[in-house]
Design a protein around this nucleic acid. Structure first.
Lengths: 347, 347
DNA sequence: TTGTATGCGTTATCAA
DNA sequence: TTGATAACGCATACAA
């Protein structure tokens, strides 16, 4: 391990003060052009690299953004990360990423680590079983900006970036109704989580708006896994009269439903129409292609980091306590478009 | 922004020296049990948090691992990230992640950032158009461990974690041959990249081992995108005699091929059998389900970080200059299993 | 078992 | 436009 070059070495080399070297390297306006040039040249020639720790220690700023995500390996979350990384990188911020693995205890530990790492700001999508957000209290009390996205806590007033899940689910359900569906199942995720709670609401509101009473046995709460899809289909097939539409709260589970339904000899969409949520690439692979709500993950990541950085730079005047809602739209594909005769039969 | 508590504050509070506080917090053995307890209690009560920068500045170590990845939002890479994060987190390391976006220039910039961030070690999967690895020279000369995974450079002797792509491709091609295929196309990625180069080799070797001459027009070099799959299929359908097997270097493109083939009325696998690479979840969604080489991304991520940390801790004696090869196996599904009569017809 | 003194590399403050 | 000095918070060599 050879010796690291410091601004003192450069200063000595050029017979100027370390202060001037520091200023020169940081492009301070009050430094003579030619001096600045000499400094840059010497730095490059001597193989200098700035020491971020010394700088951070002094400036009390890390240029680092923390991210706590439930699971990295999902299409949605990895798209979000990609968007976040792009903006952060362009703005000169580092991204420290950790996963809670859908476990509140891990999330608490991660939050502590992020706090100790002194991130300038934190982006969080909460774990499946996170009950409260006390573990983020240190961030609030220290005034470190904290921004939730996608899975956001309900009870606290905190900045969050979301889509309008109620509206999106309302559209999805309405679409099924317009296709002639009369007995629509909703396969939902954990109702404690805002996104699934809201999707359920949107489903109910849509039924209500069409003067259809929602039935408890038509609402199936699951973990949205593949297995859950198969099990839900079993239940559905035993119902009499048989449901004619399913709105599933994510694509993975919706695809699993379609596979199970096809195996049981059910025609999709004519016997049962299916709509998913997320617009993952698999929607275009399953047959029939899955109608789904487009969820702009990449864009959400971009917006999240941009908002945070704007706040850190003091650019955004708006209070940090608010909600940013991204647009989402229903992408209609074959899995939900009943043929006219099917519609007629149902009518 | 209230004042941060430091070890000096704790020391003053307890009327002991900062040195003892520092030792106590770090669980130094030579500190009185009760003193230690007092220190911990005071720290907790006063809301102390250690300052990693001051500590790093002193220790010249960051407990941070850098990762440069081509694109975050692919099934394979996000699985790798998930595995990396898990191990790093458990070992108390932070992960700084950046994407090259398949662009050598970005990769160079990222490498510089990682270097300036003084990561303890770096994990890299190189970009599509990375021609050389001069930009990692600073790491080599400073003795910072650098470990390549998946996409590894060829010309330099450097530590890398890979699967045996030649062997895997050999198995895949042999499987097609055993199904009775006689005219097997290989849709490949950029030949400059080790993984695609090796898969091509494995394909050629397998043909050779069955005394079949490989034909240049049967090897289609693409970017493995969906579009590339469609275009390749157009070419294939114009060939006379028509090929009866396709080995594609990734699943995404393989799925796109299957879709295009089906649209053209080709029966899979009986007219043309298809094998992919990666064993992405989509292999189980496309119909027929896609035969593919299982590529253990999560495991690769775990192994990569574990190796790096072992080296950093001085646990592993083995030279850092070597190669770790993970196992991979062929997962046979419907897309390649010709029915007996199809096999017979071909025989 | 505890304490004193010092340095890690940078930047803010004040002065020139 | 430049410089001297101190401070950021911690960990360690050395001393007690």
């Amino acid at each position: 391990m050879e010796k690291e070059i410091t601004i003192y070495d450069i200063a000595r080399e050029l017979s100027i003060s370390p202060t001037t070297v520091s200023r020169g390297l940081n492009n301070h306006p009050a430094v003579n052009k030619s001096t600045k040039q000499k400094i840059f040249d010497a730095a490059a020639q001597m193989g200098y690299r700035s020491n971020a720790f010394a700088s951070n220690l002094r400036k009390k700023r890390t240029n680092t953004i923390g991210v706590i995500v439930p699971l990295l390996n999902s299409n949605f979350q990895s798209s979000v990360m990609a968007g976040m990384e792009k903006v952060a990188n362009e703005a000169g911020y580092n991204l420290i990423i950790s996963q809670s693995l859908e476990n509140a205890q891990k999330e608490i530990a991660n939050a502590r680590t992020m706090f100790e790492s002194r991130v300038d700001g934190l982006l969080v999508s909460v774990a499946y079983d996170t009950e409260n957000i006390d573990h983020f209290e240190p961030f609030f009390s220290k005034g470190i900006p904290l921004l939730f996205y996608d899975r956001v806590p309900e009870h606290k007033q905190c900045t969050s970036i979301v889509i309008n899940n109620i509206q999106a689910a309302h559209k999805a359900t309405t679409h099924l109704l317009e296709q002639g569906c009369q007995r629509i199942i909703h396969i939902s995720g954990n109702h404690r989580i805002n996104v699934y709670k809201d999707r359920l609401k949107g489903y109910k509101y849509a039924l209500m708006d069409h003067n259809i009473a929602s039935r408890e046995d038509y609402i199936i709460e699951t973990d949205l896994s593949e297995k859950a899809g198969e099990e839900a289909v079993q239940k559905i097939l035993e119902m009499d009269p048989r449901p004619d539409g399913i709105f599933v709260a994510n694509d993975n589970c919706a695809v699993s439903c379609i596979k199970a339904l096809k195996q049981a000899g059910i025609a999709i969409p004519d016997d049962i129409a299916v709509v998913g949520f997320n617009n993952d690439p698999i929607t275009r692979i399953i047959e029939p292609n899955l109608t789904s709500v487009n969820y702009p993950g990449y864009e959400m990541g971009e917006v999240a980091v941009r908002s945070l950085i704007n706040y850190l730079d003091g650019v955004s005047d708006v209070s940090i306590t608010n909600t940013i809602t991204l647009n989402s739209e229903l992408v209609v594909r074959e899995s939900s478009q009943k043929k006219e005769k099917a519609k007629a039969r149902l009518a």
